[in-house]
């Protein structure tokens, strides 16, 4: 009897964590087939790729927990990257970084302003508005650079901070990883220890009920979009410093990857629950998956396909889980 329950619970666990298990199995297979997988060089490579995506995903977690969605992060990355890199020569690197983060913040505030004033409180409405804003941000980036990429390496003045973010290691960990840890700590404290974190969950759970219960829902929306904008800006800086180039279309596709990382981590797309810690696992799995597939020689096109398939699968499974819990 006891044994039967355990097998059942194992099956239930496997069913609830199908994607996570799948990626682990992939990693195990890869480590057998391709001995390069478990080398220090490859693990550092994974850590470096982790940088830009995790920043976006952390911001996206708050958005999705609040019951919204933000497709404009791709556009924000492009815009912040080109502006920041191009400003190193005229105003110096510290000021350029600050301008970059402020632009991210402004973009996020603009999104929340449109959503609140337009009453676009459904996830689908927010999706279309931010999708449109992504086109606008990308177009601004294209106009700003006349569609040409901006090179960090051509910078005439000092860009030591950028080099540090992109390449330096403090002991075994990269600088971008330390930035990530700091961001994670701050966001985790906000999520678990402050009333803002509660407000986000309640807004995502049931916005009308939250508002009637006295939760400042509109302020919460402004907050989550501002955080998403800032995190996208930080992600843009990390990305630009790693590839030493800022192109006005470099952010394309990052928004679906960020949503994928959040959903695979186990944050419900419907809002109301989730955690930045789950997103860290989700992002790690996504990066590890693409790393494994690269080592196994799978083309980027098929990887793109898999990303779409996993996104559909993750949402479908999550939906089924909630449906069966509801009954």
């Amino acid at each position: 009897m006891n044994k039967k329950i355990t097998t059942q619970s194992i099956i239930a666990f496997a069913r609830n964590n199908l994607i996570i298990l799948g990626i682990f199995i992939l990693a195990i297979i890869t480590s057998f087939v391709e001995p390069n997988f478990l080398t220090v060089g490859n693990l550092q490579n994974i850590m470096r790729q982790f940088g830009p995506l995790i920043m976006l995903s952390l911001g996206m977690t708050f958005i999705i927990m609040g019951g919204f969605i933000d497709l404009s992060v791709g556009g924000i990355i492009s815009l912040v990257a080109v502006v920041t890199v191009s400003l190193i020569d005229p105003i110096g690197q510290v000021a350029a970084l600050m301008v970059g983060v402020v632009i991210g913040l402004i973009c996020g505030l603009l999104n929340s302003f449109l959503i609140i004033k337009g009453g676009a409180f459904k996830q689908s409405e927010a999706l279309f508005l931010t999708y449109g804003m992504s086109v606008v941000f990308t177009a601004v980036a294209l106009i700003y650079t006349a569609a040409a990429p901006v090179f960090l390496t051509y910078s005439k003045t000092d860009y030591s901070i950028f080099t540090a973010i992109g390449e330096r290691f403090v002991g075994p960990v990269s600088v971008s990883f330390i930035i990530f840890l700091v961001c994670l700590l701050i966001l985790y404290i906000i999520e678990s220890r402050t009333h803002i974190g509660r407000s986000i969950c309640l807004t995502g759970g049931n916005m009308t009920a939250a508002r009637l219960a006295g939760i400042p829902t509109e302020k919460t929306i402004v907050f989550i979009y501002a955080v998403s904008g800032i995190m996208a800006a930080i992600g843009a800086v990390v990305l630009a410093s790693r590839v030493t180039i800022a192109s006005p279309i470099m952010g394309k596709g990052y928004e679906t990857q960020a949503i994928l990382a959040v959903v695979v981590g186990g944050t419900a797309l419907l809002g109301g629950k989730g955690s930045v810690l789950r997103t860290v696992i989700g992002t790690l799995l996504i990066i590890m998956m693409s790393n494994c597939l690269n080592l196994l020689g799978v083309t980027t096109y098929i990887q793109y396909m898999l990303r779409g398939a996993i996104l559909i699968l993750a949402i479908w499974l999550d939906n089924r889980k909630q449906y069966s819990e509801g009954n």
């Binding site: 999706l127 797309l269 793109y304 396909m305 779409g308 996104l311 949402i315 089924r320």
Partner: peptide, 19 residues
């Protein structure tokens, strides 16, 4: 299966672009 159409079809769009 009663899922949100916009996110499922968004994922399908990504999948088909890969195809």
């Amino acid at each position: 299966q009663n899922t949100e159409p916009f996110i499922i079809t968004l994922g399908m769009g990504v999948l088909l672009t890969g195809v």
